[in-house]
Design a protein around this nucleic acid. Structure first.
Lengths: 147, 147
DNA sequence: GCGCATCATAGGCTCATGCTTACTGATTCA
DNA sequence: TGAATCAGTAAGCATGAGCCTATGATGCGC
C-alpha cells in the first residue's frame, strides 16, 4: 500500500468533465444557450454586478470572446449592461429578472441531470465528494490570483 | 436546505482540470512528452498489449491523431509496435522497459505535484474524493460503451 | 492641461481538436 | 475466387480557443 497506483487526477477529471458537458449540452440547446452564455448567467449569480473583464476572468473565458456573448444576451434582454456612473469606462453587468428566471430554470435542469451520475456514489462519499470539489475549485481560483 | 445552491459540477470540474493540466505541463516538458504521448504511456500501463484503435478510444483521442504520437514514441524506443501474428491487420502496442521506466518516473512526479492540491482536503474527505473520482470515471467509461 | 493607465471592443493569427474521406493491406465469409 | 469488412495510415477541413495588437473613450496622477 506504500505506492498506491491510482490514475492521475487529470486523467480521471477530464473524461468526467467531458461527460458532464455532454450532459449539459442538450439542456442548454433547449434554451438557445451556448456554454459561454450559460457560464455568464451562472457567473453573474454570485455577485450582484461587476465589470466585464472581471466577469470574463471569473468564468475562465477570454475577454474578447465574452463580448459577443454579452451582446447576444443583452439583445435577448437576459442581462443589462449599463455604464457605471462612478467610472464611465466600465459597464455594470447584471441579470434582468428574465435572465434570473432562465438561469434558475436551466440550473435546476442541469443539476437534476447530474444526479444520475452522483447516484452511483454512496451517500457519505457523495457529500464528501461535493464538499471536496468546492474546496478544490476555490483553491484553484485562489491559486490563479496569487501566482 | 431543500434547494442547496451549489455550482454545477462541470463549472467546478473544468477549472480544476485546467489547473491540473497546467501542473502537468512543465513536468511533461522536462521529459519531452506531450499530453497525448503521456496519455498513451499511462494508458498502456493498464493492459499489457492492445490494438491501436482500442488504445485511442481508451484515452479519448481520435484514431488518426494518435498515429503521429505512436510514431514518435516508437522512434524513441519507448513503445513497441509489432504486427499481431494471429491477425496481421492489428498492431500490438506495448511499452518497452525504457518506456515503462519513463512512465513511472513521470507519473511519480505528477502525483507528487498533485499532492499540493489534495493537501487542502481533510484526510477523510481526500480518501472519499479519490474513491468517488475513480467510481465516476469508471461510470463514464461504462456509459460511453452502452450509449 | 498632459501623459499614462484602464476598460470595452474589434480583428487577426495560430494551434489543437473533431470529423471526414480515401487508400492500402489483411481477414472473413459467401 | 470474389466481395465485404476491418485496422492502420494519411490528408484535409471547419471549428473554437487562446493570445496578441490596435483603437476609442474615459479616468487619474503629475
Amino acid at each position: 500500500m506504500s505506492a498506491e497506483r491510482r490514475p492521475d487526477l487529470a486523467a480521471m477529471l477530464f473524461p468526467l468533465g467531458r461527460a458532464l458537458v455532454a450532459l449539459e449540452e442538450p439542456i442548454l440547446a433547449e434554451h438557445d444557450l451556448g456554454m459561454w452564455a450559460y457560464a455568464v448567467l451562472a457567473g453573474l449569480g454570485d455577485g450582484p454586478v461587476r465589470t466585464q473583464a472581471a466577469l470574463a476572468e471569473a468564468i475562465g473565458a477570454d475577454k474578447s470572446r465574452v463580448i459577443a456573448v454579452l451582446d447576444d444576451l443583452q439583445a435577448r434582454e437576459l442581462i443589462e449592461r449599463r455604464p457605471d456612473p462612478a467610472d464611465r469606462r466600465v459597464r455594470l453587468v447584471s441579470l434582468t429578472p428574465a435572465g434570473r428566471r432562465l438561469r434558475d430554470r436551466v440550473q435546476d435542469a442541469i443539476q437534476h441531470a447530474e444526479q444520475r451520475y452522483l447516484e452511483v456514489l454512496p451517500a457519505g462519499d457523495r457529500e464528501a465528494f461535493l464538499r471536496s470539489l468546492r474546496t478544490l475549485a476555490r483553491a484553484v481560483r485562489a491559486g490563479r490570483r496569487t501566482s
